[in-house]
Simulated scan of single mutants.
Amino acid sequence: MPATTIHFIRHGQVFNPDHILYERLPGFHLSERGRGMAHATGRFLAAAPGFRDIAAVYSSPLDRTRETTDILLEEVNPARGKRGLDPLNPHYDERLIEAGNEFRGKRIGRGAGALWYPSNLKLVLDLSKPSWGESYRQIARRVSDFVYEKVEEYPDAQILAVSHESPIWTFRHLLETGHPEHNMLRRGTALASVTSITLDCGSRKVLGITYADPAAGV
Rank of each mutant, 00 (worst) to 15 (best):
residue 3 A to E: 13
residue 3 A to D: 06
residue 6 I to Q: 08
residue 6 I to E: 02
residue 6 I to L: 14
residue 7 H to W: 15
residue 7 H to P: 04
residue 7 H to C: 13
residue 9 I to H: 09
residue 14 V to N: 00
residue 15 F to H: 11
residue 17 P to A: 03
residue 17 P to D: 05
residue 22 Y to W: 12
residue 23 E to M: 05
residue 25 L to P: 13
residue 28 F to L: 00
residue 29 H to K: 05
residue 33 R to P: 02
residue 34 G to L: 13
residue 35 R to I: 05
residue 41 T to W: 00
residue 42 G to T: 07
residue 42 G to M: 01
residue 45 L to P: 09
residue 46 A to T: 02
residue 51 F to P: 00
residue 52 R to V: 00
residue 56 A to G: 04
residue 58 Y to F: 15
residue 61 P to I: 02
residue 64 R to V: 04
residue 67 E to A: 05
residue 68 T to K: 01
residue 73 L to G: 08
residue 74 E to W: 04
residue 76 V to R: 02
residue 80 R to A: 11
residue 83 R to H: 10
residue 84 G to Y: 08
residue 86 D to S: 14
residue 88 L to K: 11
residue 88 L to V: 07
residue 91 H to T: 07
residue 91 H to N: 13
residue 92 Y to D: 05
residue 96 L to H: 04
residue 96 L to A: 02
residue 97 I to Y: 05
residue 99 A to W: 09
residue 99 A to H: 10
residue 103 F to E: 03
residue 104 R to G: 05
residue 110 R to Y: 14
residue 110 R to D: 15
residue 111 G to T: 03
residue 111 G to F: 09
residue 113 G to P: 05
residue 114 A to I: 11
residue 114 A to D: 15
residue 117 Y to W: 10
residue 119 S to N: 10
residue 122 K to G: 12
residue 123 L to S: 15
residue 124 V to T: 05
residue 124 V to K: 03
residue 126 D to Y: 01
residue 127 L to P: 14
residue 128 S to N: 13
residue 130 P to R: 14
residue 135 S to Q: 06
residue 135 S to P: 07
residue 139 I to A: 07
residue 148 Y to Q: 12
residue 150 K to P: 09
residue 152 E to M: 06
residue 153 E to K: 13
residue 153 E to S: 13
residue 157 A to I: 01
residue 158 Q to S: 08
residue 162 V to N: 00
residue 164 H to L: 07
residue 168 I to S: 04
residue 169 W to A: 04
residue 172 R to W: 09
residue 173 H to A: 09
residue 173 H to Q: 01
residue 173 H to K: 03
residue 175 L to H: 09
residue 177 T to G: 12
residue 178 G to C: 03
residue 179 H to N: 12
residue 179 H to R: 15
residue 179 H to D: 15
residue 181 E to I: 13
residue 181 E to V: 15
residue 185 L to W: 13
residue 186 R to I: 01
residue 187 R to C: 03
residue 187 R to P: 00
residue 188 G to S: 14
residue 190 A to I: 01
residue 191 L to Y: 07
residue 192 A to G: 08
residue 194 V to W: 05
residue 195 T to F: 04
residue 196 S to T: 02
residue 196 S to R: 06
residue 197 I to C: 07
residue 197 I to G: 09
residue 200 D to E: 14
residue 200 D to I: 05
residue 203 S to G: 04
residue 204 R to V: 08
residue 204 R to E: 03
residue 204 R to W: 11
residue 204 R to N: 14
residue 206 V to K: 10
residue 207 L to F: 01
residue 208 G to W: 11
residue 209 I to D: 01
residue 210 T to K: 08
residue 210 T to L: 01
residue 210 T to V: 08
residue 216 A to E: 08
residue 218 V to C: 10
